[in-house]
Nucleic acid binder design. Structure first.
Length: 299
DNA sequence: ACAATATCCTGCGAGC
DNA sequence: TGCTCGCAGGATATTG
């Protein structure tokens, strides 16, 4: 499940690989992934547009496009959210007997090919593909403002690695929430970019129990969490993300954070600080991992 | 107003 | 061994 570091890895890759390229065609076999407009309309409307900017907002990938022929029109925006199992891949494929076959030997695991559902054909002969086992991924395309309002981007909280997300801002957010800190960290409309993996890692690093109520945390604890957010996320970006589930970069390669992770999916293993045994509990129907010795509940 | 629950989808692990 | 069944999981919609 791609979170901020994984999405950042994709955006960095794409910036190097597809910036300035024109989209010359689209293939798809799972129209439901395209939420707006209809898949066929997107196919017609996006053809000929040039990629001019690529950025990340929370877990969303934003690809800005312009029409060289009509420079007066507003910018277009292609929003991609990978959700659980979405992969954005840069490569070359062909469709044969309704199957997607890779044309670049050894570049990708064969098994990824059968989950490719959308391909954007670029003017340099390469392709940008979206593969998604569970088909939860989301694509929205249109004039920039339309896409922003349609996809609820303006409702997002501050991006976890944005400079505007200050300690003061984090304190304000936490103090206004009576739900537990794990849920607060994962709520995209409060803070954007953190999901299940990194919320566990952050709270372990800050020595805070995931079930602590956000508005019960004292200034010092909030400061520790805030610093853990920045530290952990920056480290994970540097390591190109976590591939413990199935994240891959645009070349199909794994990230390296998983080897250095502290608690996520380590139930029963020894805490890296050497005291407790990592425990797994359910919080809002998803698994939370923590060390009962380092992360004590205090009420 | 807010919180709990259902929804989407498919591979995988548990259980028999 | 081979089959069925139920579950995970991010964000959104729907229900309580």
């Amino acid at each position: 499940m791609p979170e901020l570091p994984e999405v950042q890895t994709i955006v960095d890759d794409l910036s190097k690989k597809i910036m300035g390229r024109k989209i010359i065609g689209v293939w798809f076999d799972a129209p439901k992934i395209i939420k707006k407009p209809k898949a066929l309309e997107l196919k017609n409307q996006i053809k000929g547009l040039k990629i001019v900017k690529i950025k990340r907002l929370g877990k969303n990938i934003l690809i800005y496009l312009t029409d060289d022929q009509q420079p007066t029109t507003n910018d277009y925006l292609l929003l991609i959210h990978q959700k659980m199992t979405g992969h954005l891949l840069y490569g070359k494929w062909q469709i044969a007997n309704r199957k997607v076959e890779s044309l670049v030997k050894g570049s990708l695991e064969e098994k990824v090919n059968k989950y490719i559902h959308i391909i954007f054909y670029l003017d340099n002969g390469w392709q940008l593909a979206l593969s998604d086992l569970r088909k939860f991924a989301k694509i929205v395309f249109g004039p920039e403002k339309e896409v922003i309002s349609l996809s609820g981007l303006e409702k997002l909280g501050p991006d976890a690695l944005d400079k505007n997300f200050t300690l003061e801002k984090f304190k304000d957010i936490a103090k206004a929430q009576k739900k537990n800190i794990k849920e607060v960290l994962m709520d995209q409309n409060l803070i954007a970019g953190i999901g299940n993996i990194y919320s566990d890692e952050i709270l372990w690093f800050a020595k805070i129990h995931p079930l602590r109520r956000a508005n019960d945390l004292n200034i010092n604890e909030l400061k520790n969490i805030y610093e853990a957010i920045k530290t952990i996320l920056k480290k994970a970006v540097k390591l190109r993300g976590t591939s413990i589930s199935d994240f891959r970069d645009t070349a199909g390669k794994s990230g390296f954070y998983a080897e250095q992770r502290y608690v996520y999916r380590k139930e029963g293993e020894k805490c890296p600080r050497g005291n407790g045994i990592i425990k797994r509990i359910k919080i809002k129907s998803r698994s939370a991992h923590y060390c009962p010795k380092c992360q004590i509940v205090r009420i």
